[in-house]
Simulated scan of single mutants.
Amino acid sequence: MPRHDGPRTAPDRKSEAVVFVHGFGSTHDATWGVPGWPELMEDIGYRVVPFGLPGHGDTPVPGGTDDDTLDELLGVARREGAVSAVGFSAGSLLLLRAAVRDPGAFERLVLIGIGDGMWADPSGFSSLADTLTADEPDASTALLRQLAERAGNSLESIAAYARSAAPPPPLPSLQRLDADVLVILGDEDTVGPADALVSALPRATLTSLPRTDHYRAPSSPEAMSAVLDFFAR
Rank of each mutant, 00 (worst) to 15 (best):
M1W: 15
D5I: 06
D5W: 15
D5L: 11
G6K: 03
R8N: 09
P11L: 01
R13C: 08
R13F: 13
K14T: 05
K14L: 10
K14Q: 10
S15R: 02
E16W: 15
E16P: 13
V18A: 07
V18F: 09
V19H: 10
F20W: 12
V21E: 06
S26T: 03
S26Q: 08
A30V: 09
T31W: 15
T31R: 03
W32I: 05
W37S: 12
I44H: 11
R47D: 14
V48M: 10
V49H: 05
P54C: 02
P54H: 03
D58V: 02
P60S: 02
G63T: 04
D67S: 10
E72P: 11
L73E: 02
L74D: 05
G75K: 06
R79Y: 10
E80T: 09
A82N: 06
V83E: 13
A85T: 13
V86E: 01
F88Q: 02
S89V: 03
S89A: 02
G91H: 02
A98Q: 05
A98G: 12
A99G: 12
A99D: 07
A99P: 06
A99I: 02
V100N: 07
R101Y: 13
V110M: 07
M118N: 03
M118R: 01
D121Q: 12
D121T: 07
S123D: 13
G124S: 07
F125V: 00
F125P: 00
F125R: 00
S126C: 05
S126W: 13
A129P: 05
D130H: 12
T131A: 09
A134Q: 05
A134K: 00
D135F: 04
A139W: 01
S140M: 06
S140T: 10
T141F: 00
T141D: 00
L144R: 02
E149D: 02
A151S: 11
N153Y: 06
S157C: 07
S157Q: 07
A159N: 06
A159R: 00
R163I: 09
A165D: 13
P167Y: 09
P168G: 01
P170G: 04
L174I: 08
L174C: 08
L174Y: 07
L177N: 07
L177V: 01
D178H: 15
D178A: 13
V181P: 12
V183E: 03
V183D: 03
I184V: 15
D187M: 04
E188K: 06
D189G: 03
T190C: 00
A194H: 10
A194I: 08
S199A: 13
S199Q: 12
T205E: 14
T205K: 14
T205N: 15
T207K: 09
S208H: 14
R211H: 14
T212D: 00
Y215N: 05
P221L: 05
A223W: 15
A223F: 15
M224Q: 13
S225M: 15
A226M: 13
L228S: 10
F230Q: 12
F231W: 14
A232R: 15
